[in-house]
Simulated assay, not measured.
Amino acid sequence: MTMFLEQTDDYFGNDLEEKMAPTNEKELADRGFVVPHFNSFGLRFRDYDVESMRQEGVENFYRKNHTYQCYDFVKKMREEYGKMNKAEMDIWKCCELLDGVVDESDPDLDIPQIQHLLQTAEAIRKDYPNEDWLHLTGLIHDLGKVLLLPAFGELPQWAVVGDIFPVGCRFDESNVHYKYFKENPDYNNPAFNTKYGIYPEKCGLNNVMMSWGHDDYMYLVAKKNKTTLPSAALFIIRYHSFYALHKEGAYKHLMNDEDVENLKWVHIFNKYDLYSKSNVEIDVEKVKPYYVSLIKKYFPTEKLRW
Rank of each mutant, 00 (worst) to 15 (best):
M1W: 07
F4M: 12
F4S: 13
L5F: 13
Q7N: 12
T8L: 11
Y11L: 13
G13C: 08
E17A: 09
M20K: 04
M20C: 09
T23S: 09
K26W: 09
L28F: 09
R31A: 13
V34C: 01
V35K: 13
S40I: 14
G42A: 12
L43C: 07
R46S: 11
Y48H: 15
M53V: 15
G57L: 06
K64L: 15
N65D: 02
N65V: 00
Y68V: 08
D72Q: 15
V74N: 06
Y81E: 00
G82F: 09
K83G: 02
E88G: 10
D90W: 04
W92M: 12
K93D: 14
E96A: 11
L97E: 07
G100T: 12
V101I: 15
D103S: 11
E104C: 12
D108K: 09
L109C: 14
I114E: 03
L118R: 06
A121T: 01
E122Q: 04
K126P: 00
E131H: 12
H135G: 07
H135N: 06
L136D: 04
L139R: 02
I140Y: 00
H141W: 03
K145C: 03
V146R: 11
V146M: 05
L147N: 03
L148N: 05
P150D: 09
A151S: 14
F152C: 06
W158N: 07
F165D: 00
P166G: 12
C169A: 14
C169P: 06
D172L: 04
K179W: 02
D186I: 08
Y187H: 15
P190A: 08
A191W: 04
N193M: 11
T194F: 04
I198T: 14
P200H: 07
P200F: 04
G204A: 08
M210K: 00
M210A: 11
S211V: 08
W212L: 05
G213K: 10
H214W: 03
Y217H: 10
K223H: 08
T227K: 01
T227H: 02
L234S: 04
F235C: 08
I237V: 15
I237E: 03
R238A: 04
R238W: 01
Y239Q: 03
S241M: 12
F242V: 06
L245R: 01
H246V: 10
K247D: 08
E248Q: 15
K252I: 10
H253E: 14
D257G: 02
D259K: 10
N262K: 13
L263F: 03
K264S: 11
W265L: 12
V266Y: 06
H267V: 06
H267C: 08
H267D: 13
F269E: 03
Y272E: 02
S276N: 04
V280R: 05
I282P: 02
E285T: 05
K288P: 02
V292A: 09
V292Y: 00
I295S: 06
K296H: 09
Y298G: 01
P300S: 05
P300A: 02
K303I: 05
W306G: 03
